[in-house]
Write a protein that binds this DNA or RNA. Structure first.
Lengths: 280, 280
DNA sequence: CGGGACTTTGAGCTTTCTCAACGATGGTGG
DNA sequence: CCACCATCGTTGAGAAAGCTCAAAGTCCCG
């Protein structure tokens, strides 16, 4: 198998090896973003899309307010890279709106997307060195479409941990859950065929989007895919063309429909699961 | 790429889908093991191979003694599967001696090794559901060679967490570190060629074994590989034959020597790193 | 309505897999 | 102590999955 697609333009500013000391996101360059954030992400946590998801859900209104006092609200345009692999890790992020792709790169431009994160997801644990010490991000993060986030400095959030035992436990839960997903992805990348990969992804994504909270449903299910085929390819460890062919094959087999490029209907989720190699 | 090797004998007792309620390791069946453990793993933490590694290193002698009071010491023969994917998660383990392989399986027998763990490694975080709630293991664990471990019930260890804040933080560190490694492995599985995979593994393993704590050294380095070629293959997402060919190629290129099957000499670690696609 | 970006489909090629035979190695029993 | 056997590893040849390159099709947005 050839794996030599060159996708990341390594000469593009901001995508080269990280040497300088630059904040992951320099707000002074983009004063507008703050205003945009204020308009689109409500200042009050109570009105936030992520209030009852993920990390924020672990806290009472009062605790959350304390935590919010150390958070910046930020809004990003599509395509904005706001975490750079190799850069000093200064912040944690919590996603309030939109979808983000996390990825790692090779020097020749090959890219592996390690995850997609949506509303309520917490981001920034994966740094080199112990969690409490300063380290460097081991991944990059980029907005798919418009994204709103809460940004915390690592120092302030880690300092708050002793005040909020629930938060520390929740962080452990988040990390554990990500580990479980990562293991699953290793099985996919190491041992599944292209069609199995795509089928697995569709089910996992539907599940992640809480569309089928009670396991795999028997009836049909419509799933929104905010990412491109290229993103899917880089997540599933195949090429764009292979993703496209796999989707076409699933369509031809009658397992899915593709009403729009960014929308898939799972016609027979159970059969899809069998094809995906449902876990032992 | 064809990925249809059938390796795990799904008809073998203990490797089938888990339905029953059986402890991960029933000591009543193996009273000898306890004695063996007592002989080989000293009862005192102070004399344990893992005392100053990983989790145990986060605790004072006094705290460790308290923790040890809720631990069983267990010794396992080579090949013993002591955690079963899908079984109820009742224990955590800490490895005191030997090496363990963690893996996930597909119904048709394909296997993906998700990690190798050695002395000081902590095992059992990866369960379905939140860390604090009862769940099921999402991986299996098997001894490579003889293994000694400390076994904790999840309930007792999680109960102790509130008494030992250092321990909780350390657990988060462990989970974070595993996440970083998992991301790296996804890049390997999704985007690297066979030779790059093997080169990456050799360096990562040397690093994990603390043979080159200060980064990649310029001079040669001897690495012990306790696992078989098949294990390597299942870890690297290729076949045994491909691992063998990659090693032969690295030998022919003068980058490594293979004095014994389970021993590799890295002749030019830096060149190997360049080949492995050292991180951006 | 037109242009650019994204997607699909096709044809030939490369890497890796599969299958098979041969070689090494380590443990065991004569 | 050595020969034998079982297991594990290596090497080769042909097959196949997925990759590359190329062209045609779609869709969105101005």
């Amino acid at each position: 198998m050839c794996r030599a697609q060159r996708r990341i333009d390594v000469d593009q500013p901001g995508r080269v090896c990280y040497n300088g000391i630059v904040p992951d996101l320099d707000l002074r360059e983009r004063p507008l973003l703050i205003n945009l954030a204020a308009r689109l992400s409500p200042a009050k946590c109570a009105d936030c899309g992520a209030r009852h998801v993920g990390l924020c859900d672990a806290l009472s209104d009062g605790d959350l307010q304390l935590l919010a006092s150390v958070a910046d609200r930020v809004s990003l345009p599509a395509g904005k890279v706001f975490v750079e692999e190799g850069a000093p890790a200064r912040h944690f992020y919590n996603i309030n709106y939109g979808t983000v792709r996390l990825f790692k790169g090779l020097p020749d431009g090959r890219r592996q997307i390690t995850g997609f994160m949506g509303v309520g997801h917490f981001l920034g644990l994966k740094v080199s060195g112990p969690a409490a010490a300063p380290g460097h991000y081991v991944f990059s993060a980029e907005a798919i479409g418009e994204v709103h986030l809460c940004r915390f400095t690592r120092a302030s959030l880690l300092a708050k941990l002793s005040q909020f035992p629930a938060l520390e436990r929740k962080l452990l839960d988040v990390a554990t859950h990500e580990l479980v997903i990562a293991q699953e992805q290793m099985l996919l990348l190491g041992r599944k065929t292209a069609v199995e990969r795509v089928a697995s992804f569709l089910l996992a994504w539907a599940d992640r989007m809480s569309l089928c909270p009670a396991g795999i449903p028997a009836q049909k299910l419509t799933v929104d895919l905010p990412m491109t085929r290229m993103d899917l390819a880089d997540y599933l460890g195949v090429t764009m063309e292979t993703v496209s062919r796999a989707l076409s094959q699933l369509k031809k087999t009658g397992l899915i429909e593709l009403p729009h490029i960014h929308e898939v209907v799972l016609l027979a989720p159970r059969k899809l699961a069998a094809l995906a190699g449902a876990e032992i």
